[in-house]
Write a protein that binds this DNA or RNA. Sequence first.
RNA 1: GGAGGGGUAGCGAAGAGGCUAAACGCGGCUGACUGUAAAUCAGCUCCUACGGGUUCGGCGGUUCGAAUCUGCCCCCCUCCA
Length: 374
Amino acid sequence: MKDFYLEIKHIDKKTGARYGILHTPHGDVEVPMFMPVGTLATVKTLSPEELKSMGSGVILANTYHLSIRPGADIVAKAGGLHKFMNYDGPILTDSGGYQVFSLAEKRKITEEGVHFKNHLNGDKLFFSPEVAIDIEEKLGADIIMSFDECIPYPSSYEYTKRSTERTLRWAKRGKDAHKREDQALFGIVQGGDYEGLRKMCAEELAKMDFPGYSIGGTSIGEPKDVCFRMIDYAVKYLPEDKPRYLMGVGSIDYLLGGVARGIDMFDCVLPTRLARHGALMTSTGRVNIRDAKYKEDFSSLDENCDCYCCRNYTKAYLRHLYVCDETFGKRLLSIHNIRFLIRLMEGAREAIKEDRFQEYMDEKLAQFGDKRGF
RNA sequence: GGAGGGGUAGCGAAGAGGCUAAACGCGGCUGACUGUAAAUCAGCUCCUACGGGUUCGGCGGUUCGAAUCUGCCCCCCUCCA
């Protein structure tokens, strides 16, 4: 599809981090970028206008969840996801492959596909590469994902091999089923922590010539060095001119580490979930806004942040809203966390353009702490 | 004045002789969250120098043993006069 392509503008000389423009049917966005997750066709608590004002580019929605509620046909009748949720920027739908992992007790995998028990009422559901693509075509996102199995970590070599080979067959089936010209279908590299399997998977997907590639099976509890290794194993064998998407990554250290390894796109529920739970990523580290020490703290959440929340409200007020379980508090905190990650990536892009990404990463890791969770 | 009912940890509320430092809820304090079954989940919440110490309105009594039985007293609530 010609409406969709990555225009690489600059590659950081020291690290190989990429700066570019991703062209999509719903506008151009700069990469590397962080994509907020809106599983049920809403980034929880936030309006599209708010997202736009934070500099959001692509946002996610989820095939499995939307197929249950409200149903793909209803979204299609509404005119597709963009119209349904009133977001005119690019949208990406995950295929349900993550639910194969997260709803493991409620599904059975066969060669044909995955039999789920609806997590809400136990209804029988069947997802296959063809079913997922059919739903994704009805939803109408700009970028859609192949139906895969997100393999748990750790998994045995035998299982990982069997599953990865099946995911490859599913990728082919999905590609054959995909007909819409205005959607970019990405392949997903699995292969666990096994270099040979990651290589095989990446090479086979590359042969199928997808408009973009994801790295899956990451950020599901594995140690950081393992995650970085899995990225390295896959990236080496992916075409340079296509976008690379690391699935499920949203903490500062993983994001920067991913960028340094040549990743262009990231998504994660972390900023929105943390925000709803009162945990904030700030330029001085993690803040749990519920903590009593903020009771009379009338300073802003992050003096260095330009978001609506930090420009207008104090920690004492945000704590008050959190403690009282007021929705507005969750919204303000979500605005902050998302803006925080979007800004982190804006900084990364500027640094890449000037060949100083390594310095940028070192500085940020020193500032925020090189640890998981924020 | 008469007749009932009741006082349990910060609050509400179980418990009716040993398994009780006392269920549970709220409140308070602290963690965790990674392609969202998550506005969720977990821990702590009498004091402690971690050996133990002091608790169930108060002071006595019975008992090997009392928040639980008993005497008196102090409060609170409802109804009647």
